[in-house]
């Protein structure tokens, strides 16, 4: 874990290893505990945790690992998830609930149900996907600290 902090913003960065299902969820719970210790309301902590978990799983399953960063600044939490995976061929298809390109062995473990991106969309306020086949994917996700516009 590395961090870059100044007075007004706070960044935590975590590396996610490819196909490392054993430590899946650690980044999410680390982010959540950090937000909690800052006194951030429980529902925001939970949304961040869900979003970070799904991003983490995407990097674990498809992305060949990657970096997930959480930045806390002003009125928002920004999560940036960057991987060097194959990229997403059809983003609108990937946004559909239940659509999954996860390999069978991943599905057999109970992951890859095609809820990753839809859940990220559902529990965040802004989602921006930057992807190119063969060049990886970068997600930029924003959750506002004031609970407005959140889906719940």
């Amino acid at each position: 874990m590395s961090s870059l902090n100044s007075r007004d913003s706070f960044v935590i960065e975590r590396e996610v290893k490819p196909l490392d299902f054993l430590s899946a969820g650690e980044t999410a719970s680390d982010f959540k505990e950090t937000l909690k210790s800052l006194g951030i309301p429980a529902d925001i902590c939970r949304k961040t945790s869900i979003v970070a978990y799904e991003a983490e799983m995407n990097a674990v399953i498809h992305g060949g690992g990657g970096i997930i960063a959480m930045e806390l600044e002003g009125d928002r939490i920004t999560i940036v998830a960057k991987d060097q995976g194959p990229g997403i061929e059809n983003v609108s298809l990937a946004m559909q609930e239940g659509y999954s390109t996860a390999p069978d062995f991943v599905r057999e473990m109970g992951f890859g149900a095609g809820m990753g991106l839809p859940n990220i969309k559902k529990y965040s306020d802004e989602l921006d996907i930057e992807t190119k086949p063969g060049e990886g994917t970068t997600l930029r996700i924003v959750i506002f600290l004031k609970d407005e516009g959140g889906v719940e």
């Binding site: 961090s3 902090n5 007004d8 706070f10 210790s37 800052l38 006194g39 429980a42 806390l72």
Partner: peptide
């Protein structure tokens, strides 16, 4: 009801400072 845990600082700016210090 939740049992409130003490945050690191009185307000968020202070808590963020403390968190950097903690790290």
């Amino acid at each position: 009801r939740p049992i409130e845990q003490m945050p690191l600082g009185r307000d968020m700016a202070r808590a963020m400072e403390k968190l950097s210090e903690l790290q």
